[in-house]
Amino acid sequence: MLWEYANYRKALVRNRHGVELTVKVQQINGHIYDYTSDDKKGKHTLKITPEALASHNDEIEFKCTIKNSRKSLNILIHPREVLLINYDYFQWHDPQNNLDNDKYVELAPGSEYSVIIKYYDANCNTLGIKLPLSFTFQTVEENPHRFSIVRSINISVGVPDENADDETGPSPFKGKPWPPGIKVMPPVPYKAFPYTHSIPKKYWKVLLYGIDNWHGMGQGNGNDFEIVKEIKEAFEPGYVTAKNYKKYWHIVLWMEEIAQTISLQQYNMENVSHG
Rank of each mutant, 00 (worst) to 15 (best):
S134R: 06
T139V: 04
Y113I: 11
E112S: 12
G110S: 08
A122P: 01
Y87N: 07
C64L: 11
S72Y: 02
G110M: 06
N123F: 15
Q138I: 01
N97I: 10
Y87L: 14
D102W: 14
I117S: 04
E106Q: 11
D94I: 14
I116A: 06
Q91N: 08
L99C: 06
I75F: 01
N97W: 12
I75M: 03
L73P: 03
P95I: 15
F62D: 05
I77Q: 01
I117Q: 04
R70D: 03
K103M: 12
P132C: 15
T65C: 05
L107Y: 09
L83A: 09
S69R: 13
I75P: 00
I66N: 01
N123G: 08
Y89A: 09
N125S: 09
I117E: 10
N68Y: 03
E106G: 03
N98P: 02
G128N: 13
K130T: 11
L76S: 02
T139A: 03
K103H: 11
S114D: 06
S134V: 11
L127F: 14
T136Y: 02
N74K: 13
N125C: 04
L83M: 08
R80S: 14
I117F: 15
V82N: 03
Y120L: 09
K118G: 02
L127T: 07
N68L: 04
W92D: 14
W92Q: 13
L133P: 02
G128L: 13
D100T: 15
E106T: 12
E112F: 03
N101S: 05
V82E: 02
K67Q: 10
N74Y: 14
Y89S: 05
I85K: 13
I75D: 00
I66Y: 02
F137I: 00
D100M: 10
I75G: 00
C64I: 12
W92F: 15
K71E: 07
I66M: 08
I75N: 00
L127Q: 07
E112H: 05
D94P: 05
R80K: 12
S111L: 05
T126F: 13
D88T: 08
D100S: 10
I85L: 07
L76H: 02
C124F: 08
Q91M: 07
L131Y: 06
S111T: 13
L107K: 04
F62T: 08
I117R: 02
I60F: 06
I60S: 04
P79A: 15
N101K: 06
L107I: 11
D121I: 10
I77K: 01
D121L: 13
H93K: 06
S69M: 10
P132Q: 15
P95C: 12
N68K: 02
L127P: 01
S72H: 03
T136V: 11
W92T: 15
H78W: 15
E61M: 11
I75S: 00
E61F: 14
R80T: 14
I85M: 08
Y89T: 07
T126N: 04
S114F: 14
F62Q: 06
L84C: 07
I77E: 03
E81F: 13
I129H: 03
L73A: 12
K118M: 10
E106P: 01
E61Q: 10
V82P: 00
D88H: 09
L133W: 14
S111F: 06
E81V: 12
W92M: 13
D100G: 06
C124Y: 03
P95Q: 08
L76I: 01
P79M: 14
T139P: 00
N98H: 15
F137D: 00
D100Q: 08
Q138A: 06
